[in-house]
Design a protein around this nucleic acid. Structure first.
Lengths: 155, 155
DNA sequence: TATTGTTATACTCTATAACTATA
DNA sequence: TATAGTTATAGAGTATAACAATA
C-alpha cells in the first residue's frame, strides 16, 4: 500500500560506516533534530540544551550549575551564559545556596513552569511519527540500550 | 570485583527525559564524541564530518557534492568549504563530471587513501570499550534500530 | 526554470583563560 | 588549595543569500 521511502542519498553505499555507533547516532539524529526544531525550538523559542535545562530544573528544583554542567556536558562558562539568557527571558532564577555560598540554586519562575510543562508535554509524543517503523518493544529496547551507554560514561 | 561507575551527575533525576530519544541520543553521544576525539580527531587531524567524508569517498569513488550534502545533512555551501580544506591537505581531488558538467566527482588522492584506510581501521574497534556493557546481540540490535530510524528519514 | 556548485558573510555555538568568592 | 561560578574573548561550526555554469 504505502510506497517505499526515498533513500536520502541515492547510490551512496554507507555499509562502510554500518559498524560505527557514532555514525549511526549522527544519522538518526538528523530527523530527530528536525522534529525538535519544528515542535519545540520554533514554537517555544528554545534550543535543545535550553529545553533540557528547563525540564531538568522543573524536575530537580534547586539544581545547581555544576550539576547541570556535568549532566549536559557543557562547560561551566557556557552554563552561566545559558542561564543568563533563560533568566533574562524570565523563565528561571538563581538563588545563592545557604549551605554552600559558592553555589547557585536554580529554580523556575511561574512563567518557566508553564513553558516547561507545555514543552515537556509536547516532547512526550513528538517522536511518535519517526518511531512508527519500530515496534513498542523495539522502542523500549532502543531507549534502554542508549541509557546503558550513557550510564557508564565517565564524567 | 569492579566498583560501580560514578554517576555523571549525582542527585540529578533524569527520568523526566527517559522517554525522549533525542535526549538519550545526546547523552550516548557524549562518550562517543570523546572516543572519536582521542582516537581519530587528534591523531589524524579530522573532525567527524571530515572523517565520514573520506570514508564515504573511499568506498564511493566519484561521489559528488550533492550526494555528500544529502548523506551528511550538510549544506552545499559547507560541503564546498570542507572539500576545499581536505583538498588543500592533499587528501582528495574534484574532477568535473563528463556526463553532467555542473557536478564535481570527488576522489581520494594516494595520501587520502592511506589516511582513510588507517582511520577506518581504527574506527572498527575504537568503540569496543564503551560497548563492553552490551552483549553482542545488544550491539547488533542497537545499530540496527538506529539504522532503521535513519533509513526512513525524509531527505 | 531547475540544479550543482561556489563565494561571501553573518550568526550561533563552544572552548579557553583569567578572575571572584567561598570552602 | 580546591571548588562554584562569572566574565571576556577567540575559534569552530553552521546557515543564508547571491551568484555562475550547466541541465
Amino acid at each position: 500500500m504505502s510506497s517505499a521511502p526515498e533513500p536520502h542519498a541515492p547510490g551512496v553505499d554507507q555499509t562502510c560506516l554500518a559498524h560505527l555507533l557514532g555514525y549511526q547516532l549522527a544519522q538518526a539524529d538528523i530527523p530527530l533534530k528536525k522534529i525538535f526544531f519544528k515542535r519545540i525550538a520554533e514554537p517555544f523559542g528554545l534550543r535543545p540544551v535550553e529545553f533540557t535545562t528547563l525540564v531538568l530544573v522543573k524536575f530537580n528544583p534547586g539544581i545547581n550549575g555544576k550539576q547541570l554542567a556535568q549532566t549536559l556536558a557543557v562547560t561551566a562558562a557556557n552554563i552561566t551564559l545559558m542561564l543568563d539568557k533563560l533568566s533574562e527571558k524570565g523563565l528561571l532564577a538563581r538563588v545563592r545556596s545557604e549551605t554552600d555560598r559558592r553555589a547557585q540554586n536554580v529554580h523556575l519562575t511561574a512563567a518557566g513552569e508553564v513553558l516547561a510543562a507545555k514543552a515537556h508535554e509536547v516532547s512526550l509524543t513528538m517522536e511518535q511519527d519517526l518511531l512508527r517503523h519500530l515496534s513498542a518493544g523495539e522502542r523500549v529496547m532502543l531507549l534502554e540500550l542508549l541509557q546503558k551507554l550513557a550510564k557508564h560514561r565517565r564524567v
